[in-house]
Computed example of a mutant assay.
Amino acid sequence: MTNYSGRRGFLLGGAVLGAGALVSACTSNEPAAAPASAAAAPSGPAGANDAPGTAVTIGFSAPAADHGWIAAIAKNAQSAAGRYSDVTFKPVEPTNDINQQISAVESLIQAKVNALVILPNDGQQLNQVARAAMDAGIPVINLDRVFPDKLSYRTWIGGDNYGMGVAAGHFIGDKLKSSGASNPVIVEIQGIATLPLTQDRSKGFADALKTYGFSVTAQQDAKFTVESGTQVAANLLQAHKKIDAIWNHDDDQGIGVLAAIKEAGRDEFFMVGGAGSANAMREIQSGSSVLQATVTYSPTMAASAIRLARLIAQNKGMSDLMENEVPQSITLASETITKDNVARYLPLGFES
């Protein structure tokens, strides 16, 4: 969900609780399904930095909520801001139009907000307006999709697309190796194949599988939509009469993938999802689905971005670190959610 080099691409993995706790003590343009509700950001443990401080206004700009993960981004940001009596949250109208987002960010600069959290539709195309904010003395917290110019943001926070692929590859590789599989048929359903975020996910997946002596048998993209997920999965199921494992990059499009699988009556394989949606977690929790795991890319990163913006605007650092200032870059880990740990993560899942 840009310069599409960072996205979600829906939990913070090893940092899903860790990042939230750390910050509080001081988370793809993907067109798709209709907007839906999402879990509120985790509160995290209280710390000295949570005590009221200097009043600050935080501006917020993100794409339109036409996808479950993006909808959850906005909800997490607003929820995090609402936890602080010293924060005034100033969001602008979400949009998928580049020029409209630029104008919206310019309005926040003119309003002289104390910090800006921006998830750009396109990092390259919004780079200049982000730089204008920084030049005006407004620190920019670049959320997920990275601006190419480091002078255009104070801090970047986002997920690890390559790490998502690695996590999925290890889960599938280990499970197949343990079962004694030989030359397994491994199918990969991507989001949008041309995006760097997708390519990063695929590379991580291939690299991890290689450590088990396995490789991807078939790969096709499903455009991050439920409809394409259904169609692509149906085609792959028809083309491969036997499949051992499937990795679907995106839990939102995974609704369509699972629908095609159920329609075909196929269950000889297991599947891994991507992002950490609530519906995917419920499938995993049921124990009766081919979906046995999902690898995280959580929209709770938006809550962490708001917390970082507050700390930066108040000239505070992260109290769990020795340094006096918030780091320049924070990459959140991707964790594997299975039936064994799904109860821990379900409250953080977003609705597709």
Rank of each mutant, 00 (worst) to 15 (best):
G123N: 01
K175Y: 10
T296D: 15
A71W: 02
L108I: 07
G47M: 01
L12Q: 14
S85Q: 07
A72V: 05
D267Q: 10
G265H: 04
A62Y: 04
L108F: 09
G68D: 00
N235W: 12
G47H: 03
S298K: 10
T95E: 00
P91I: 00
A278K: 07
S182E: 13
G180E: 04
R131W: 11
Q253A: 15
A72M: 02
A15I: 08
D252V: 15
V166S: 03
D320H: 15
E351W: 13
N315W: 12
P148C: 07
T294Q: 01
G349H: 02
F147C: 04
E323W: 13
G213K: 06
I157T: 04
P45C: 11
S178C: 11
S107Y: 00
A111N: 10
I186E: 04
T296K: 12
S85R: 08
R131V: 15
T155D: 10
G158A: 11
I261Y: 04
Q124D: 14
T211Q: 10
K223M: 15
N161M: 11
F147Q: 03
T57G: 02
N315K: 15
A130T: 08
F60A: 09
G13W: 01
P45G: 07
I138D: 05
D250P: 09
F147E: 03
S304A: 15
N127S: 06
Y212I: 05
A48N: 08
S298E: 14
G53V: 06
G173I: 00
A278C: 08
G137Y: 10
S79D: 10
S28N: 14
Q190P: 10
I141D: 02
G20A: 14
G13K: 00
E106P: 03
N315L: 11
K316A: 08
P35K: 09
Y297M: 15
D50V: 03
A309C: 04
G191L: 00
A245N: 09
E30L: 12
N76S: 04
V113E: 00
P184Q: 13
M322R: 12
G82H: 06
A245R: 09
D221W: 04
K112N: 06
A343E: 06
L195W: 07
I98A: 08
K210S: 15
E188C: 12
I172G: 01
E227C: 00
A167S: 11
I172E: 00
G6L: 04
K242V: 11
L291K: 01
T194W: 09
N3V: 15
I189M: 14
S79C: 09
D221Q: 12
V113K: 00
